[in-house]
Design a binder for these strands. Structure first.
Length: 837
RNA sequence: GCCCGGGUGGCGGAAUUGGCAGACGCACAGGACUUAAAAUCCUGUGAGGGUUUCCCUCGUGAGGGUUCGAGUCCCUCCCCGGGCACCA
């Protein structure tokens, strides 16, 4: 049997549209014909369409349905346009909910996960999404996660994976560490519970080594929404400034390094502030005069906790350390303070305070009665501020010999040069981005392939011993690092000395899994390397990636980082993996997010049972622009279902006439009536609109255009005395093609009922003919003083002169220009005449 | 505070480059079919008004501007959503 031609049940048209039977039939046909399976084929242009892989939480929700339906319409459209389309799916299968389920229901996380995947896969099949299921991946399988471990080892070798002891974000609810990206306003991104600080030893990926590239390469991403790029720029948070050393007065050998973006204000620096965690502060607490107060303050700050401390409302507090530093520009002696608003992890953990030109410094100086000295005047030389607020803009320097009179910008350059020449400072760049902490004190994740040996220390597991298998468990206990309780896992021998050793018991952040899964879709079998070179070469870059904007600074930055690491490992030959990105809007119900706790969740299963997958697919794409929020509406869904039924009725009504029609040749323009030509025109306008709309993710207007076309068919059939069967056949066949990206089951059935043998999947997308789409008579609008007063019809190609003459002769128009002098006549060719009186 | 979006009928939303505002769908109303209802088909549906097959006035968050002409461009402001934020 030829592929693409097997029909299990030939179409026998019923009066009513039996979506359940039809959808089932075509899902089976597609599976048997293996239609969506693809191979690399250098003779055909490829298109890699990717959607963010789902977490197998138990069931698909409407958000998934929207995401994957939008993607599927593009995949099917591109296939029909002749592209070799890679469209796969997988499961982000590691993660905490599986462990929570294990704790609650006493089922092994693996079984819970695999069961969920099975359920959700069935749901995917029922939606009719065109995936190549051979390429499916599950990140919890050793075939997959061994490569996470392999990447870890490569990164360890390169110094990109390292162990760090430090303050971490700890989520009590999850009993694990979170990366900075995973903390939102002090709350855990997953369960919104409060994140606390904890001192722990953690494995980190040195993403900061790539901060400049991650920033620069955003400019390559022309197909990404500006919003996402600006979010990433914000997150990376580059600021260019200078590092300057302020020597200590009583210990000139040492100096306090500060970072500033406003070197031009340094003549106004009246004190220096250190972060409470600054390395020198500890040594100063035994100072007889200030030590006690210092210690008390350090304790206070420590108790405040990071997120209280970094909240803007928090009062700025500090204490004097008793020390003085020397401003290297003025040689002036200024006091050294510590304060809660200076953070150790940004810049150098120390600042110069310029109260006259910085709001925080100003407030602080007022509170503790410190000097405020203006050194910047606004450009227009208006008298500088009267000291009730800081002047933070750029301006002209004053009181800054020898730099006085320079603009802020000029001064910054000259002052850096000066510092460099004198050896007390240099240009410096700070980033907000922190390294990615990937250790998770959880069970259901990729084991980190490291071993601790008493003799040899921290030793990597040799590559040939991968994967380090995650041991099977029956259930999980809360409140401990689960792997540490499994002796068979924990105890091992040292790869170097064969002596007694124990394994690392933390697992990897699941964002590691999703950082490179889309490479594995191009070859999920290869077991000698994470990726196969030729496959990556053929399929990459991803042409279009569709997902939610909530991953803008999580997954979407990690994945870019991973690609750069892979490039430097020689695995891939490009900087950026994803050419086009589309972020779809959320699905709401009654204006709020769907959630179990609100009880406003719509189940895709229920909808599919009641209306069919095609109606659901249509609704989620029709009801709102793809990038905006979509408010669920039962009535809107009904409307889409009605449209399919209406189309079906027309097909049924015409089925007899159509089979009599001479389908060999399409009827010529000359043989058609005026109404017939109008219908064909509408058809071609629709083809043009759909082609255009699908390229630009305008599924909503594309579907509206098909609805309009159907309305035109109804109009034609009702009004024409002798409707042309061959024209109707032409229109309906084309309509099946146009509909197939959105409602593929319906379209296939329609196509078959019109006598077609081949499946629609690879049927060529209809050709747009601008000649046929052009209006026969064009309507010219007549305006008087910019207001529409009349219209007349004319033949295309009418000259400007003719238009003007006709407009001025128009009876209705005359009434408006009567007795008034004509000042000007504007003629827009083929469109409008505006008479100004 | 800074940076992105957005504000159009009763509702979701349309509107190449500045050129007929409100496509399409929902909801509503009327009609046809029916014993009746549902379903379906047809018609109407921004607001106000008039001499009511037709016509006028107003109308895209507010105010101003550019233009023959502005939902669209410019300025000022208001509101809603999102991101970043004691980041030096």
């Amino acid at each position: 049997m030829e592929p693409g031609t097997c029909n299990l049940e030939p179409s026998t048209m019923n009066e009513s549209y039996d979506y359940a039977a039809i959808e089932k039939k075509w899902q089976r046909n597609w599976a048997q014909a293996r239609e969506f399976e693809v191979q690399e084929d250098s003779n055909r242009p490829k298109y890699y369409l990717l959607e963010m892989l789902p977490y197998p939480s138990g069931a698909l929700h409407i958000g998934h349905v929207r995401n994957y339906s939008l993607g599927d319409s593009i995949a099917r459209f591109k296939r029909m346009q002749g592209f070799n389309v890679l469209h796969s799916i997988g499961w982000d299968a590691f993660g905490l909910p599986a462990e929570n389920a294990a704790i609650q229901h006493k089922i092994p996380p693996e079984r819970w996960t695999l069961d969920n995947i099975e359920t959700m896969k069935k749901q995917c099949l029922r939606m009719g999404w065109s995936y190549d299921w051979n390429r499916e991946i599950m990140t919890c399988l050793p075939e997959y996660y061994r490569w996470n471990q392999w990447f870890f080892l490569q990164m360890f070798k390169q110094g990109l994976a390292y162990r760090r002891k430090g303050t971490v974000n700890w989520c009590e609810q999850c009993q694990t560490v979170l990366a900075n990206e995973q903390v939102e306003n002090g709350l855990c991104w997953r369960d919104k519970s409060l994140v606390v600080e904890k001192e722990l030893e953690q494995w980190c990926f040195r993403i900061t080594q790539y901060n400049e590239q991650l920033l620069q390469d955003l400019d390559q991403l022309e197909g990404w929404p500006e919003k996402v790029k600006s979010m990433q720029r914000n997150w990376i948070g580059k600021s260019v400034g200078a590092r300057v050393t302020f020597p200590l007065e009583d210990d000139p050998g040492v100096g306090i390094d500060i970072f500033t973006t406003r070197l031009d204000t340094i003549y106004g620096a009246t004190f220096v502030v250190l972060a409470p965690e600054h390395e020198w502060v500890r040594g100063w607490t035994d100072d007889p005069e200030h030590g006690e107060e210092l210690s008390r303050f350090l304790e206070e700050v420590r108790q405040q906790g990071r997120d209280v401390r970094t909240a803007e409302e928090t009062e700025k507090k500090g204490v004097f350390t008793g020390r003085y530093a020397i401003n290297p520009y003025t040689q002036e002696r200024i006091p050294v303070w510590i304060a809660n608003f200076v953070l150790m992890e940004y810049g150098t953990g120390a600042i110069m305070a310029v109260p006259a030109h910085d709001e925080r410094d100003f407030a602080f100086a007022k509170k503790y009665d410190l000097d405020i000295r203006p050194v910047i005047q606004s450009e227009d030389r208006s008298p500088s501020s009267d000291l009730d607020q800081a002047f933070v803009d750029y301006g002209v320097l004053v009181n800054s010999e020898p730099f006085s009179g320079l603009s802020s910008q000029e001064a910054q350059k000259k002052m850096v040069q000066h510092a460099q020449a004198e050896g007390f400072g240099e240009e410096s760049v700070s980033y907000r981005l922190r390294d990615w902490s990937i250790s998770r004190q959880r069970y259901w994740g990729t084991p980190i392939p490291m071993v601790y040996c008493q003799k040899c220390g921290v030793v990597p597991v040799p590559e040939e011993d991968l994967p380090v298998l995650l041991p099977q468990v029956e259930s999980i206990q809360l409140g401990q690092s689960p792997l540490a309780t499994i002796p068979e896992f924990l105890n091992t021998s040292c790869p170097q000395c064969q002596g007694e050793a124990r394994r690392e018991t933390d697992t990897m952040d699941t964002f590691v899994d999703s950082s490179w899964y889309f490479y594995r879709y191009t070859d999920n079998q290869i077991d000698s390397s994470p990726v196969r070179d030729e496959a990556v070469r053929y399929w990459f870059p991803v042409d279009m990636y569709i997902g939610g904007v909530e991953h803008a600074i999580l997954h979407l930055i990690y994945m870019r980082f991973f690609t750069k690491v892979m490039r430097d490992l020689g695995l891939v030959g490009f900087d950026e993996p994803v050419k086009g990105l589309f972020t779809q809007g959320m699905v709401l119900k009654g204006g709020v997010k769907m959630s179990k706790s609100r009880g406003n969740v719509v189940s895709p299963d229920t909808v599919v049972e009641g209306y069919g997958a095609d109606a659901l697919r249509l609704f989620v794409q029709f009801a709102a622009p793809a990038d905006r929020e979509l408010d669920w509406s039962d009535q809107g869904l009904e409307g889409c279902s009605r449209f399919l039924n209406r189309l079906w009725r027309m097909l049924y009504r015409l089925r007899e006439e159509m089979s009599q029609g001479d389908s060999a040749d399409s009827i010529s323009q000359e043989e058609l009536s005026k109404r017939g030509r109008a219908l064909r025109r509408k058809l071609h306008q629709t083809i043009g609109k759909l082609t255009h709309d699908l390229e630009r993710f305008r599924q909503n207007t594309a579907i509206a255009a098909i609805m309009e076309l159907l309305n035109s068919v109804y109009e034609y059939v009702d009004q024409e005395d002798h409707p042309q069967p061959s024209l109707l056949e032409e229109v309906l066949k084309t309509m099946a093609l146009l509909l197939s990206p959105f409602a593929p089951h319906f379209a296939e059935e329609m196509w078959e009922s019109l006598g077609q043998k081949e499946h629609l999947t690879f049927a060529p997308w209809p050709q747009f003919d601008p000649e046929l789409a052009r209006e026969e008579g064009i309507k010219i609008v007549i305006q008087v003083n910019g207001k529409v007063r009349s219209r007349f019809s004319a033949l295309p190609g009418i000259s400007k002169e003719e238009m003007e003459t006709l407009a001025l002769e128009d009876e209705k128009t005359k009434a408006f220009i009567e007795g008034k002098p004509i000042r000007k006549v504007i003629v827009v060719p083929q469109k409008l005449v505006n008479i100004v009186v």
